[in-house]
Amino acid sequence: MARFAMAIDTKKCVGCMDCVVACKNENSVPEGYNRDWIVTITEGKYPDVHLEIQSQRCNHCDNTPCVECCPTGASHVNDVGAVVLVDHDKCIGCKACLAACPYSARFINPEGYADKCTFCIHRVEKGEMPACVNVCPTHCMHFGDLDDPNSEINKLLASRKFHQLLPEAGTNPRIFYLT
């Protein structure tokens, strides 16, 4: 069983938002909504400043409060890649999953259903990289299978320092920020 994940190299990311624009186009994300976004964290006092830039999206968590709280089964873990998806035709728009996601990674599509990053499963199934990974001009995003010991992502995680977002939320997110 594959377990897709992303490792994003914060050393290389420049926060250019190309990943955000590409996702918009690829997935027709409506104007005013984001499936991915850029967070910058600035620490210190000028000129001794440290800056980390993170390209964020749904973490496709191993433990999924968003799926658990969904009353209709619309939110589910996909058989392929354990990607967390929403079945539009089952979603009643109760927004429980929006509130349950510690990362606020979801939103309600103007058509009424819960929407979020799909890890571009439609591309991945065709053997392509997710749109954001594919566009990133700094090549700082890496996508792959955590269950495959030989995957590039596992090699990166073995050789680099990294952190996940809000590990204390207990979700075990599958987006790793290399530092």
Partner: peptide, 8 residues
């Protein structure tokens, strides 16, 4: 790979 402006 285009830059974000090119992509947009």
């Amino acid at each position: 790979r285009l830059c974000p402006r090119g992509t947009g």
